[in-house]
Design a protein around this nucleic acid. Structure first.
Lengths: 225, 225
DNA sequence: CAAGTATTCAATATATTAGTTGATTAATTG
DNA sequence: CAATTAATCAACTAATATATTGAATACTTG
C-alpha cells in the first residue's frame, strides 16, 4: 500500500504501540511500579522484582528505549528513575483500568487475602479522613529511603524489617493505620498481622503514597520521624 | 520460587500486562481509536484500518479477551464497541504520553504536514474559544453516523466525501474551522486543502470529538444539521 | 431450505520476545 | 595497576505474536 495517509497512520500508531509494548510485560510493569516509589539501582530492582541482574538490565533498557525511564551512572552503580511523573500516573491509570475491566484482579487479591481476616480496608473513606486529619497513628512500613522520598505528614517510619524491635515506639491505646507502596504491596499486610498478634489495634490502608498524591493529599518530604 | 508474596505479585502484574499486551500492537490501537468514535462492524473496521477481515477479527478478539471492547451480533453483522468510556480515556492518556515522551511522533507529524502550509493549528487556544462560542462556522467532516453519535454544538456536518458537492452550504465570508476524529485523522486536512483551493477561509483544528469531550466542551447528540 | 454474506476458526509461516548463560566493559579501591 | 564489583552485551533457546490462507459457522433472505 503506497497511500501516504496509510503510511502516516501506520507510523503514528507504531509509535503509540511502543508505549504499549513497553508495558506489555509483567516484569517491566513491576519495575515501573517500583520506580514510582523512587530511583533505584539495577541491583536493587533486580532483587525486588525477582529477576536476574542481566534480565532486569535488559527490561530496564527496553523501558529506557521508550523514554519511560532514565538511567544515570553514579559511581559503580547505574541509577534508574522515572523519566517523568506522568509515567507514574500512566501506570496508575492502567492499573485502575485493569482493576475495573478484569475481574481476575479482584479474584487474585481475594484469594491472597483469604484467611487473613480484616485485611481488606473497611470504611475506607472515613479512615482516609482520619488519616488526613492525623487523628490516628499513621505508620509507614516502607524502607526508610522511600519514606524520606515522600510520606503522609505525621506518619511514623518503621520499616517492616525493624518493626519487631521497635514496637515500643507505637501506642497501645490508639488505632494504628499502616500503609506501604500500594494495593499490591504486602508490607502493610505483614505489619498489621504482626501488630495484631502483639495486641495492637491496627488496620491496613490499601493506598500507597502515589495514590495519596493523586488524591490530593499533602505529601511530606525528607523529615525523619 | 514458592514464596506466596511473589506468586501474588506475579499473578497481579500478569493481569496488568494483559492490558499492555492488548495495546502493544499498532493495528489494535488503530482499531481502538476507531471504536472511540463509535460502534462499528468488523467489515467497516477492517476497511478503515487496512486489515483483512480475518485479521481484524482476530485483533478484535484479542481486545475482547481483555474486556476492552464488547461484541454483539446484530443480524448478519457483529458490532464491536468500547466496553467503557474509560477505555477511550486510557487510549488518550497513552497517546498523550507517547506525544510527550517520544519525539518521533512530532517528527512524523511534521514530515507528513511538510508542504501543506498552515495545516498546523495556530493560536489554538483562541480558536478553541471561538469554537466554543460558536463565533466561527464549525465544520464536522466525519461520516454522518459519527456526527450523529456526538459533535460540537452548532457544527455543520459535511462528510469529506460529499464536500465537493456541498460547497454551497458553506459561507464564503466567514472563517471555517474543520475538525474530524483527532490529531492523526487526515479528514480535516484534506477538507481544508480543498476548501482553500476553492477560495474559502478555512483552518483545521487538531482536536477530535473525544478531545473536546475531555476538555469539558458540551457535546451535541443526534440532531442533524 | 438453498444461496449469499459476515464473521470466525484452524493451520501455517514468519517474526518478535523473554529468559539464561557466560563474556565483556566501566568504575572503584587497595 | 590488579582485583573487585555493577552493569551490559552477545549468543542462544523456548515461547509468543502476527499475518495469511482457506475452510467452517451463523444468520438472513428469497
Amino acid at each position: 500500500m503506497k497511500n501516504p495517509n496509510r503510511l502516516f497512520k501506520n507510523a503514528i500508531y507504531e509509535q503509540f504501540a511502543r508505549i504499549g509494548k513497553a508495558v506489555s510485560s509483567p516484569k517491566r510493569l513491576e519495575l515501573l511500579d517500583l520506580l514510582c516509589q523512587g530511583p533505584r539501582t539495577v541491583e536493587v530492582l533486580s532483587k525486588e522484582s525477582g529477576l536476574t541482574i542481566a534480565n532486569a538490565s535488559q527490561h530496564l533498557q527496553v523501558l529506557r528505549a521508550t523514554r519511560l525511564v532514565e538511567a544515570e551512572k553514579e559511581g559503580l552503580f547505574v541509577v534508574y528513575r522515572l523519566a517523568d511523573q506522568t509515567v507514574c500516573d500512566f501506570f496508575r491509570t492502567m492499573r485502575v483500568l485493569a482493576e475495573n475491566r478484569l475481574a481476575e484482579v479482584e479474584q487474585i487479591k481475594r484469594r491472597f487475602l483469604e484467611g487473613r481476616e480484616g485485611m481488606e480496608a473497611v470504611d475506607r473513606k472515613a479512615l482516609l479522613e482520619l488519616v488526613r486529619k492525623e487523628a490516628v497513628t499513621v505508620l509507614d512500613v516502607r524502607p526508610v529511603e522511600e519514606y524520606k522520598a515522600g510520606h503522609i505528614p505525621g506518619a511514623i517510619s518503621i520499616p517492616l524489617k525493624e518493626l519487631q524491635l521497635r514496637l515500643s515506639d507505637l501506642p497501645r491505646d490508639r488505632e494504628i493505620v499502616a500503609y506501604c507502596r500500594g494495593p499490591y504491596c504486602v508490607l502493610s499486610i505483614q505489619a498489621v498481622e504482626m501488630l495484631r498478634a502483639k495486641g495492637f489495634k491496627a488496620v491496613r490502608i490499601e493506598e500507597g503514597i502515589q495514590d495519596f498524591r493523586a488524591m490530593g493529599f499533602p505529601i511530606a518530604v525528607n523529615e525523619e520521624v
